[in-house]
Design a protein around this nucleic acid. Structure first.
Length: 251
DNA sequence: CTGGGGAAGGGGCCC
DNA sequence: GGGGCCCCTTCCCCA
Protein backbone atom coordinates (compact mmCIF):
# COMPACT_ATOMS: atom_id res chain seq x y z
CA UNK A 1 0.00 0.00 0.00
CA UNK A 2 1.74 3.11 -1.18
CA UNK A 3 2.17 5.82 1.36
CA UNK A 4 4.81 7.71 -0.44
CA UNK A 5 2.43 10.45 -1.41
CA UNK A 6 2.41 11.62 2.12
CA UNK A 7 4.98 14.13 3.13
CA UNK A 8 4.75 15.13 6.70
CA UNK A 9 6.00 18.50 7.78
CA UNK A 10 6.93 18.93 11.36
CA UNK A 11 6.32 22.34 12.81
CA UNK A 12 6.15 21.14 16.33
CA UNK A 13 7.41 17.95 17.70
CA UNK A 14 4.67 16.82 19.90
CA UNK A 15 1.18 16.11 20.94
CA UNK A 16 -1.53 17.23 18.59
CA UNK A 17 -4.21 19.49 19.83
CA UNK A 18 -7.40 18.12 18.43
CA UNK A 19 -9.24 21.36 18.90
CA UNK A 20 -6.96 22.67 16.17
CA UNK A 21 -8.46 20.25 13.77
CA UNK A 22 -11.65 22.21 13.66
CA UNK A 23 -10.13 25.59 13.13
CA UNK A 24 -6.93 24.88 11.42
CA UNK A 25 -4.56 27.78 11.50
CA UNK A 26 -1.31 26.04 11.03
CA UNK A 27 -0.09 24.17 8.03
CA UNK A 28 1.45 21.08 9.34
CA UNK A 29 0.93 18.77 6.51
CA UNK A 30 1.45 18.57 2.85
CA UNK A 31 -0.42 16.05 0.83
CA UNK A 32 1.17 14.94 -2.34
CA UNK A 33 -0.60 12.22 -4.23
CA UNK A 34 1.15 10.13 -6.78
CA UNK A 35 -1.88 9.78 -8.93
CA UNK A 36 -0.90 11.28 -12.24
CA UNK A 37 -4.19 12.89 -12.80
CA UNK A 38 -4.60 14.40 -9.43
CA UNK A 39 -2.91 17.47 -8.13
CA UNK A 40 -4.59 18.04 -4.85
CA UNK A 41 -3.62 20.73 -2.49
CA UNK A 42 -3.81 20.63 1.19
CA UNK A 43 -6.01 23.24 2.65
CA UNK A 44 -4.87 23.49 6.17
CA UNK A 45 -6.00 26.80 7.50
CA UNK A 46 -6.29 29.70 5.18
CA UNK A 47 -4.11 28.78 2.28
CA UNK A 48 -3.77 25.90 -0.06
CA UNK A 49 -0.45 24.30 -0.67
CA UNK A 50 0.03 23.04 -4.16
CA UNK A 51 2.89 20.67 -4.08
CA UNK A 52 5.13 18.94 -6.45
CA UNK A 53 6.37 15.48 -5.98
CA UNK A 54 9.30 13.85 -7.62
CA UNK A 55 9.34 10.15 -7.13
CA UNK A 56 12.68 8.60 -6.54
CA UNK A 57 14.00 6.62 -9.44
CA UNK A 58 13.70 2.90 -9.02
CA UNK A 59 16.71 1.15 -7.67
CA UNK A 60 18.10 -1.88 -9.35
CA UNK A 61 16.96 -5.21 -8.00
CA UNK A 62 19.13 -7.10 -5.63
CA UNK A 63 19.92 -10.76 -5.73
CA UNK A 64 20.21 -11.79 -2.10
CA UNK A 65 17.58 -13.96 -0.62
CA UNK A 66 15.15 -13.19 2.14
CA UNK A 67 16.14 -13.13 5.73
CA UNK A 68 14.87 -15.95 7.78
CA UNK A 69 14.39 -14.64 11.27
CA UNK A 70 14.07 -18.10 12.62
CA UNK A 71 17.72 -18.49 11.94
CA UNK A 72 19.77 -16.65 14.53
CA UNK A 73 22.70 -16.19 12.27
CA UNK A 74 20.90 -14.19 9.72
CA UNK A 75 22.43 -10.84 9.07
CA UNK A 76 22.44 -9.74 5.70
CA UNK A 77 23.83 -8.00 2.83
CA UNK A 78 23.26 -6.09 -0.22
CA UNK A 79 20.65 -3.64 -0.95
CA UNK A 80 18.00 -2.57 -3.27
CA UNK A 81 14.96 -0.50 -3.56
CA UNK A 82 11.34 -1.30 -3.74
CA UNK A 83 8.39 0.71 -4.69
CA UNK A 84 7.61 1.92 -1.27
CA UNK A 85 11.08 2.22 0.00
CA UNK A 86 13.58 4.90 0.60
CA UNK A 87 11.10 7.57 1.34
CA UNK A 88 11.01 9.73 4.36
CA UNK A 89 8.33 11.58 6.13
CA UNK A 90 10.72 14.27 7.06
CA UNK A 91 11.85 17.09 4.89
CA UNK A 92 15.49 17.95 4.60
CA UNK A 93 16.53 20.24 7.38
CA UNK A 94 17.85 23.69 6.76
CA UNK A 95 19.32 23.83 10.23
CA UNK A 96 23.09 24.05 9.96
CA UNK A 97 23.56 23.45 13.65
CA UNK A 98 22.27 19.96 13.38
CA UNK A 99 24.89 18.71 10.95
CA UNK A 100 26.56 16.57 13.54
CA UNK A 101 23.45 14.50 14.03
CA UNK A 102 21.79 15.06 10.71
CA UNK A 103 20.67 12.03 8.77
CA UNK A 104 22.77 11.63 5.67
CA UNK A 105 19.90 9.97 3.86
CA UNK A 106 17.06 12.36 4.43
CA UNK A 107 18.71 15.34 6.04
CA UNK A 108 16.62 15.13 9.16
CA UNK A 109 18.22 16.69 12.23
CA UNK A 110 18.11 14.16 15.01
CA UNK A 111 19.28 16.19 17.94
CA UNK A 112 22.00 13.86 19.03
CA UNK A 113 24.15 11.05 17.72
CA UNK A 114 21.94 8.61 19.58
CA UNK A 115 18.88 10.10 17.99
CA UNK A 116 20.53 9.90 14.62
CA UNK A 117 21.40 6.29 15.18
CA UNK A 118 17.84 5.47 16.08
CA UNK A 119 16.42 7.49 13.23
CA UNK A 120 18.62 5.71 10.72
CA UNK A 121 17.03 2.45 11.69
CA UNK A 122 13.86 3.70 10.10
CA UNK A 123 15.35 3.96 6.64
CA UNK A 124 14.90 1.23 4.21
CA UNK A 125 17.87 0.42 2.21
CA UNK A 126 18.70 2.67 -0.68
CA UNK A 127 20.46 1.53 -3.78
CA UNK A 128 23.87 -0.09 -4.01
CA UNK A 129 25.52 3.19 -4.66
CA UNK A 130 27.95 3.25 -1.84
CA UNK A 131 31.30 1.73 -1.46
CA UNK A 132 33.70 1.28 1.40
CA UNK A 133 33.45 -0.75 4.55
CA UNK A 134 31.75 1.86 6.65
CA UNK A 135 29.13 2.58 4.05
CA UNK A 136 28.58 -1.06 3.41
CA UNK A 137 28.02 -1.73 7.06
CA UNK A 138 25.66 1.21 7.40
CA UNK A 139 23.61 0.08 4.44
CA UNK A 140 23.47 -3.61 5.12
CA UNK A 141 20.05 -4.89 4.15
CA UNK A 142 17.73 -7.16 6.07
CA UNK A 143 15.36 -8.88 3.72
CA UNK A 144 11.89 -9.98 4.59
CA UNK A 145 11.40 -13.62 3.76
CA UNK A 146 7.71 -13.05 3.15
CA UNK A 147 7.89 -10.19 0.70
CA UNK A 148 10.44 -8.15 -1.26
CA UNK A 149 10.89 -5.51 1.40
CA UNK A 150 14.22 -4.95 2.96
CA UNK A 151 15.42 -2.81 5.83
CA UNK A 152 18.66 -1.43 7.11
CA UNK A 153 18.17 -2.84 10.59
CA UNK A 154 16.99 -6.04 12.11
CA UNK A 155 14.67 -4.09 14.39
CA UNK A 156 12.92 -2.45 11.49
CA UNK A 157 12.63 -5.76 9.73
CA UNK A 158 11.21 -7.47 12.81
CA UNK A 159 8.60 -4.79 13.08
CA UNK A 160 7.68 -5.29 9.47
CA UNK A 161 7.56 -9.06 9.77
CA UNK A 162 4.87 -8.73 12.41
CA UNK A 163 2.61 -7.63 9.60
CA UNK A 164 3.10 -11.10 8.15
CA UNK A 165 3.06 -13.17 11.33
CA UNK A 166 0.20 -11.30 13.01
CA UNK A 167 1.08 -12.31 16.57
CA UNK A 168 -1.77 -10.47 18.28
CA UNK A 169 -4.89 -12.56 18.21
CA UNK A 170 -8.34 -11.49 19.33
CA UNK A 171 -9.61 -13.80 22.03
CA UNK A 172 -13.18 -13.16 20.98
CA UNK A 173 -13.18 -13.73 17.24
CA UNK A 174 -9.71 -15.03 16.54
CA UNK A 175 -8.77 -12.28 14.15
CA UNK A 176 -5.03 -11.59 14.16
CA UNK A 177 -3.17 -8.31 14.08
CA UNK A 178 0.38 -7.15 13.75
CA UNK A 179 0.39 -4.78 16.70
CA UNK A 180 -1.07 -4.98 20.19
CA UNK A 181 -2.72 -1.62 19.85
CA UNK A 182 -4.35 -2.69 16.61
CA UNK A 183 -5.81 -5.58 18.53
CA UNK A 184 -7.00 -3.23 21.26
CA UNK A 185 -8.70 -1.09 18.67
CA UNK A 186 -10.32 -4.17 17.26
CA UNK A 187 -11.47 -5.31 20.68
CA UNK A 188 -13.37 -2.04 20.96
CA UNK A 189 -15.50 -3.23 18.09
CA UNK A 190 -16.59 -6.05 20.38
CA UNK A 191 -16.95 -4.03 23.55
CA UNK A 192 -18.45 -0.95 21.96
CA UNK A 193 -16.02 1.27 23.80
CA UNK A 194 -15.66 4.69 22.17
CA UNK A 195 -13.16 6.76 24.08
CA UNK A 196 -12.82 9.54 21.52
CA UNK A 197 -15.65 12.04 21.71
CA UNK A 198 -16.45 14.85 19.33
CA UNK A 199 -16.58 18.19 21.15
CA UNK A 200 -19.19 19.46 18.71
CA UNK A 201 -21.75 16.72 18.73
CA UNK A 202 -22.61 13.66 20.69
CA UNK A 203 -20.71 11.27 18.53
CA UNK A 204 -17.91 9.20 19.91
CA UNK A 205 -15.42 7.02 18.15
CA UNK A 206 -13.36 4.01 18.92
CA UNK A 207 -10.51 5.29 16.82
CA UNK A 208 -8.80 8.65 17.10
CA UNK A 209 -8.20 8.89 13.39
CA UNK A 210 -11.88 8.42 12.77
CA UNK A 211 -12.63 11.21 15.18
CA UNK A 212 -10.19 13.38 13.32
CA UNK A 213 -11.90 12.61 10.06
CA UNK A 214 -15.22 13.31 11.68
CA UNK A 215 -14.04 16.69 12.92
CA UNK A 216 -13.48 17.64 9.32
CA UNK A 217 -17.20 17.33 8.78
CA UNK A 218 -17.67 20.16 11.25
CA UNK A 219 -15.22 22.36 9.41
CA UNK A 220 -16.36 24.66 6.66
CA UNK A 221 -13.06 24.51 4.88
CA UNK A 222 -12.13 20.95 4.23
CA UNK A 223 -8.62 19.74 4.24
CA UNK A 224 -8.33 18.49 0.69
CA UNK A 225 -8.97 20.74 -2.26
CA UNK A 226 -9.45 19.95 -5.91
CA UNK A 227 -6.78 21.76 -7.89
CA UNK A 228 -9.19 22.44 -10.71
CA UNK A 229 -12.52 23.43 -9.24
CA UNK A 230 -11.30 24.39 -5.77
CA UNK A 231 -13.95 22.28 -4.15
CA UNK A 232 -12.79 20.96 -0.83
CA UNK A 233 -13.24 17.56 0.74
CA UNK A 234 -12.85 16.17 4.19
CA UNK A 235 -10.90 13.17 3.01
CA UNK A 236 -8.33 12.51 0.38
CA UNK A 237 -10.32 9.51 -0.74
CA UNK A 238 -13.30 11.76 -1.45
CA UNK A 239 -11.11 14.11 -3.43
CA UNK A 240 -9.76 11.16 -5.33
CA UNK A 241 -13.26 9.93 -6.09
CA UNK A 242 -14.20 13.42 -7.15
CA UNK A 243 -11.30 13.55 -9.55
CA UNK A 244 -12.01 10.13 -10.96
CA UNK A 245 -15.61 11.10 -11.50
CA UNK A 246 -14.47 13.52 -14.15
CA UNK A 247 -14.23 16.95 -12.62
CA UNK A 248 -10.67 17.33 -13.62
CA UNK A 249 -10.23 15.31 -16.80
CA UNK A 250 -6.94 16.88 -17.66
CA UNK A 251 -5.61 17.89 -14.32
C1' DC B 1 -23.14 9.68 -6.80
C1' DT B 2 -21.51 11.75 -2.67
C1' DG B 3 -20.25 12.01 1.97
C1' DG B 4 -19.43 9.99 6.27
C1' DG B 5 -18.52 6.21 9.65
C1' DG B 6 -16.14 1.94 10.90
C1' DA B 7 -12.30 -0.84 10.69
C1' DA B 8 -7.82 -1.81 9.73
C1' DG B 9 -2.77 -1.42 7.98
C1' DG B 10 1.76 0.29 8.60
C1' DG B 11 5.83 3.47 9.19
C1' DG B 12 7.76 6.92 12.59
C1' DC B 13 8.83 8.55 17.09
C1' DC B 14 9.15 8.57 22.12
C1' DC B 15 9.81 6.33 26.46
C1' DG C 1 15.28 -3.11 21.48
C1' DG C 2 10.53 -3.39 22.37
C1' DG C 3 6.14 -1.46 23.55
C1' DG C 4 2.98 2.01 22.99
C1' DC C 5 1.16 5.64 20.66
C1' DC C 6 1.51 8.87 17.06
C1' DC C 7 0.23 9.90 12.42
C1' DC C 8 -1.62 8.96 8.00
C1' DT C 9 -4.01 6.27 4.65
C1' DT C 10 -7.26 2.95 2.30
C1' DC C 11 -11.16 0.02 1.86
C1' DC C 12 -15.82 -1.15 2.62
C1' DC C 13 -20.36 -0.16 3.63
C1' DC C 14 -24.33 2.59 4.24
C1' DA C 15 -27.47 6.69 4.24
Amino acid sequence: MPRSFLVKKYFSNKKPNYSELESQTDQRYAVVPLHDSVVPMLVWGSSALPLAFTPAPPSPPSPPGPLDLSSPSSSSSSSSGEEDDCRTSDPPSPDPDSDRSQCSQCGKPCGSPAGLSRHQLTHCTPGPQTTGAASTAARAAFHCKHCPKEYTSLGALKMHIRSHTLPCVCGTCGKAFSRPWLLRGHIRTHTGERPFSCPHCNRAFADRSNLRAHLQTHSEVKKYQCGTCSRTFSRMSLLHKHTLSGCCPSA
